[in-house]
Design a protein around this nucleic acid. Structure first.
Lengths: 206, 206
DNA sequence: TCAAAACTGAGAGTCACTGTCAATACGCAA
DNA sequence: TTGCGTATTGACAGTGACTCTCAGTTTTGA
């Protein structure tokens, strides 16, 4: 997974501010709920003003998604690096690697976020928008690389991004820590199901 | 497609109010944009107060989706009516019939809505939430009817609802009226692609 | 026809979000 | 190091979505 280092002091400062606000937001959202947390609260808890919050994020929900735009950029870079290799294996591998990076760094923070994405309606809604970005990105990729028809490309994008989404969704809802697997394990299964045809489940076959 | 008739005068009155507000909202959203239309404007244009608007819809965006909850209920009724017939053919037919009802009644209103769902970010976001309701409904159905594993059921829900969504998406983006097909045609193609395996597009096969 | 229940509009209040402005901090050249 | 131009910050005011409450009216069921 490629990550570009921020250049100037100002850029680094900006990243740090975003991360601090994000941490403060996720913590407060978990403690007292999304609606019960004001932007003022978030900003103050991280020693910033509300003005600064809105300079960093365009909406209150976005604080919980501070690294999402970067993640898609990193994914694009990985795909570019693979050059002209067959598309599906490349994409599959890139998405697996991408899912692995979710839990690295601060795994508590990551887990809290996934919980929130599935529990807080306002965050769930924003989450779906980001998932749509993945769908459209994949559709565009498929169009460009193999010249698929619009409908086929869109559907492929939805299904592949859907594999990722279903993996996170099932992991978030598997309550007991004993049966709980890593997202990567679920994703591997999801990709296998997709390759075998996702309608297989409907005819009762395993 | 089964539609239950509202019983009391109050229920019918309520439906009428909702429809009037919805029509007024969609018209204004198209004329001057979502952000440039206030709830006050919508209510006044339909001769109601803002209070009444919020009694009918919990959010400003919801006015453009006034019949969505009913649509899912109707779909459920269709599925129930089919009894124990094989799941996929039944579901497929029900969704095709469901898509057909989209354009009936007022086709201008329907077309305007689809345009808005794809152009206005706030409405696009809400639209995705409703699509997720379809995903979850299908997943639940698959679980109950064929006892699929959670991951397989979720993925099937996402892919099948995704076929519907991709059909609407592609139809909305096909600019010229000449090449533009009905949603039903696109949906038929999407289901075919799903049955053949949605990853087919990635290996360049047609 | 009457009482209970639901519906309605009005008004006040909170908070997300936008835009502006002056003060400050920083990056860079001399 | 000093000074200049630029970016960043917080304070402030304003709009509009949304919530809640209350009083007046309409509808429902007996």
């Amino acid at each position: 997974m490629t990550t570009s280092l921020p250049s100037s002091t100002r850029d680094r400062r900006r990243i740090r501010t975003r991360r601090e606000l994000a941490a403060s937001a996720v913590r407060l959202f978990e403690e007292r709920g999304f609606a019960e947390t004001t932007v003022e609260d978030i900003a103050e808890a991280a020693d910033y003003s509300a003005s600064t919050f809105f300079r960093m994020f365009s909406r209150k929900e976005d604080a919980a998604f501070h690294d999402m735009p970067d993640r898609l950029v990193a994914l694009q870079a990985d795909l570019d690096a693979a050059g002209d290799a067959p598309l599906w294996p490349t994409l599959r591998a890139a998405l697996m690697a991408h899912a692995e990076t979710w839990e690295e760094d601060d795994s508590d923070f990551a887990a809290a976020r996934v919980r929130l994405f599935h529990l807080e309606p306002a965050l769930a809604s924003r989450y779906l928008e980001y998932c749509q970005d993945y769908e459209l990105w994949i559709a565009e990729l498929v169009t460009r690389r193999v010249g698929a028809e619009p409908l086929a490309a869109q559907l492929a994008g939805i299904c592949i991004a859907g594999a990722l989404r279903s993996a996170f969704r099932v992991q978030a809802s598997s309550a007991s820590a004993k049966t709980r697997l890593s997202v990567v394990d679920y994703l591997e299964d999801a990709f296998r199901l997709l390759e075998a045809g996702p309608l297989g489940a409907l005819s009762g076959r395993r």
